[in-house]
Amino acid sequence: MKEMRTEDAVGQILCHDLTQIIKGVTKDARFRKGHVIRAEDVPVLLSMGKDHIFVWENDETMLHENDAAEILRQLCQNEYMTASEPKEGKIELTALVDGVFQVDESRFDKVNELDDVTIATLPQNMPVKAGQKLAGMRVIPLVIKKDKMEQVKKVAGSEPLLRLRPYRQNLKVGVVTTGTEVFLGRIEDTFTPVIASKLKAFGLTINEHRLSDDVAEHTQKHIEELIDLGMDMVICTGGMSVDPDDRTPAAIRDAGAEIVTYGAPTLPGAMFLLGYVQKDGREIPVMGLPGCVMYAGRTIFDLILPRVITGEKITRREIRHFGIGGLCMNCKVCHYPVCGFQH
């Protein structure tokens, strides 16, 4: 690449896109990389403020920004993503399906720590819709050394840096609503409709529903029954606090669940429970939901549910990391998942 006066550049080949901005009319590339400059282009270039331009000068040790962006795309793109054509040295990735977007943070950060390379993505574990933009990437200079991009590839490793976990379809969901007052009909069950609404957002319904009093053995029996019926997920509502008559955690444990966590550093949702039951080669997530899920706009359940639907097994360490950003700001207008309450 070399710089020269625009008036002297007729016949030369542009080595990068040139954007023309006319307020209220256009902001787009007026001349594309590879364009052979003609005499009639010179006045237009000058009107764009291009008294000097950069034209292609063959150098086997360098890569053009578009070619370098293509390397970054190869390092990032995974299944269920589509890529844009390079434009002004930038490539964007878009979701092909609904799912949960994830980044291999350790390797990703190492790549972004390198000079002249930049990749920006949506937040970690963000639920996304098909057609939603996931990431954009580019190198900073117009040309970059090939050796530098080889270093980038070495740091990134062989596996894609990004991942989109699609939601599993046709999952069977069982719900156990606990509480003697609900079981005996003293009050209306207002918790289950909330769960049904949240499941509906992912195309799911409640396949089996059981009511249980506050006797732990009865709740345990219902959980086991739902698992035997082939439920892919069991959700228990109520009885999750530390009061003596709140016995749902014990019932989940006695039903054979290996408890990942009882309690989470999120507000709302501190008394959340997650466990997994092994049954006939399957691993069934069982969740205990505290009362806040019934009345709060967003809770830990909204963070966990999308990932459970993808089939991901969530670890205790991940949940314990929720504390950073785990305080919902209770905005008057909720913008979740475009907010800080996101992991």
Rank of each mutant, 00 (worst) to 15 (best):
I300Y: 14
R316H: 08
I300K: 15
Y295V: 12
P306H: 15
K313I: 03
G291T: 08
E318F: 03
V286G: 01
P285N: 04
M294A: 10
G288E: 00
R320F: 03
V286R: 02
L273S: 00
T310K: 15
Q278Y: 12
C292F: 00
R282F: 01
A296R: 15
V277F: 07
D302H: 09
M271A: 14
L305M: 07
R317P: 04
Y276M: 08
V286L: 05
M294H: 07
E283A: 14
R317F: 01
M287V: 13
F272M: 03
V293Y: 06
P285G: 03
L273E: 00
E312D: 04
L305C: 05
M294K: 11
Y276D: 09
L289K: 11
L273N: 02
R307C: 05
P285H: 06
Q278V: 07
G297M: 12
Q278S: 15
A270N: 15
T299S: 14
C292K: 08
P306G: 13
P290L: 13
G288N: 00
G288S: 02
G297W: 11
L289H: 11
P285S: 00
G297R: 15
T299N: 11
I304H: 02
G269Q: 10
L303R: 06
V308S: 11
E318C: 02
L289V: 07
I300W: 11
I300L: 15
G281E: 13
F301Y: 14
R317T: 10
K313A: 03
G291L: 08
G275A: 12
T315M: 02
V308F: 08
R320A: 00
G297Q: 11
P285R: 07
M271W: 14
T299A: 06
Q278C: 11
L305P: 01
V308R: 10
L274E: 09
V308H: 12
K279N: 11
E318M: 02
I300D: 13
G297A: 12
P306R: 15
I309W: 03
L273R: 00
L303M: 12
R298L: 08
D280F: 06
K279A: 10
F272R: 01
I319A: 10
L274V: 00
L303P: 01
Y276R: 15
M294E: 09
T315K: 01
L289P: 08
L305N: 06
G291F: 03
D280L: 04
Y295G: 07
D302P: 09
K279E: 09
G311W: 00
C292W: 01
T310I: 06
Y276L: 07
V308D: 07
V277N: 08
R307V: 04
C292T: 05
L305I: 05
V286K: 02
G311D: 00
I300G: 12
L289Y: 11
G288W: 01
I314G: 05
G291H: 03
I319W: 06
M294T: 10
G291C: 09
Y276S: 12
F301E: 09
I300V: 14
F272C: 03
E312T: 04
E312W: 06
P268A: 03
G291A: 10
A270C: 12
M294C: 08
Y295W: 13
I309E: 01
D280E: 12
V293C: 13
G297C: 10
I304V: 09
V308Q: 14
R317E: 10
L305W: 04
T299C: 08
P268F: 01
V286W: 06
P306T: 14
G275C: 09
Q278N: 15
R316Y: 05
